[in-house]
Design a protein around this nucleic acid. Structure first.
Lengths: 210, 210
DNA sequence: TCTTCTCTGTGACTAAGTCACATACATCCC
DNA sequence: GGGATGTATGTGACTTAGTCACAGAGAAGA
């Protein structure tokens, strides 16, 4: 990957020293991962840190009952900050991660990453900013889960995830993102359909009231 | 505060350079805050960062209905990492904080803190470690809230918070920590009393089955 | 003792999650 | 086309959690 390609995706580094960019790109190993592949599981060690060039990764927790909840998603120009967190604090991975589309990423071994963070202010700023954004985000999620109504959370979710008022996914997938069960999602969606707010069919939800 | 007093509480800095310690202590402003005082509210800016020398601070979120949930507590030798997070990423405070006992802390203006982090590896390590511990902790909390049963969460809470099998607090305070309502706590405690697992009286809960 | 304030108890109702099972849709094979 | 199979969705009955309204108990001061 060239310097220019890198900067295009990781725009925070656009004004960074040539030294940092050269070092980074010399170390980085390019990797492609197909959609639906588990990247990390809870308790894993973190030998490398991943910088996502394209595609999306879902980070989630699992309950004993098998229910799941999405903590956040990682997109292009971001890094799997939990890797950073593990590496810099020497702990193991506290959640699960899976690719939700084909993903291209740059891998940096943890020892090299540590050195980059120590040497380069831009790298530190990047990591701090992302780490604190995640912390805020997960705190926000606690608030939603603890106090929010499921029907409202579902509606917000539909609006956020839909493209042109349409969403192609299963009720189970929605439940896994929201941390509830498939039945609850099915029932709430049916209520919305009765209120003429959505049209349902297999693998598809169409928003009517925009 | 002398260097030795500081190191006693913030033991991670015990092997740090004299330079860092001197600089830190020259900048730090000592402050005492009585119990029950609001330190930050959601949306506040962070002009300073607080290093807690003694006492405890509770960090929590509030819902529209007035319910609260504790995200974590800050004790001696820790810093209010959300301050750090705000300062280093330039955002505002995403939660509320209140002293739960008399607190003594050292305040560092944000610009000075930024400089300390840039210059000293030990300070970076300290901040990263705490930040990632908090992130893990809050993720754990999401899991508990999303999937845990309230009776089990309550029991865990009682065991964790009790001293010599005794706990002096109100049902409302417990509810505020767990993110539920006072009635739910009262009912579940009554159930535990009927099962001979606790003895209840005003402002006090005694664990019987240790 | 009376008043006032805080804390706790409880019934009735709504929201959310679980369990069990029925039904619908899609795909592949013949 | 017509089955067979697998995945996705619908729904009733039940349990757990949260809300609302209000009753009653304990503490503390006048």
């Amino acid at each position: 990957m060239t310097k220019n390609e890198f900067i295009k995706t990781f725009s925070v580094f656009r004004n960074s020293s040539d030294e940092l960019l050269k070092e980074f790109l010399a170390i980085a190993r390019h990797q492609d991962v197909p959609a639906g592949k588990r990247i990390y599981s809870e308790g894993d060690a973190c030998p490398v840190i991943a910088f996502v060039v394209s595609g999306e990764i879902r980070v989630f927790k699992t309950g004993q009952t098998g229910r799941e909840i999405t903590l956040y998603e990682i997109g292009p120009g971001e890094t799997c900050i939990l890797n950073a967190s593990c590496i810099l604090s020497g702990t193991s991975y506290p959640a699960n991660a899976v690719t939700i589309s084909d993903v291209t990423m740059l891998l940096i071994p943890s020892s090299d990453f540590r050195r980059l963070v120590d040497r380069h202010e831009e790298m530190r700023d990047f990591v701090f900013a992302l780490l604190s954004r995640r912390l805020s985000g997960v705190m926000e999620l606690v608030e939603e889960v603890a106090f929010g109504r499921m029907d409202e959370r579902l509606l917000d979710y539909l609006i956020e995830k839909s493209e042109n008022g349409k969403l192609e996914t299963t009720h189970q997938n929605i439940a896994n993102d929201l941390g509830t069960s498939r039945e609850v999602v099915s029932r709430l969606l049916k209520d919305l359909e009765r209120k003429q707010e959505v049209r349902l069919s297999r693998n598809s939800i169409v928003l009517l009231k925009t």
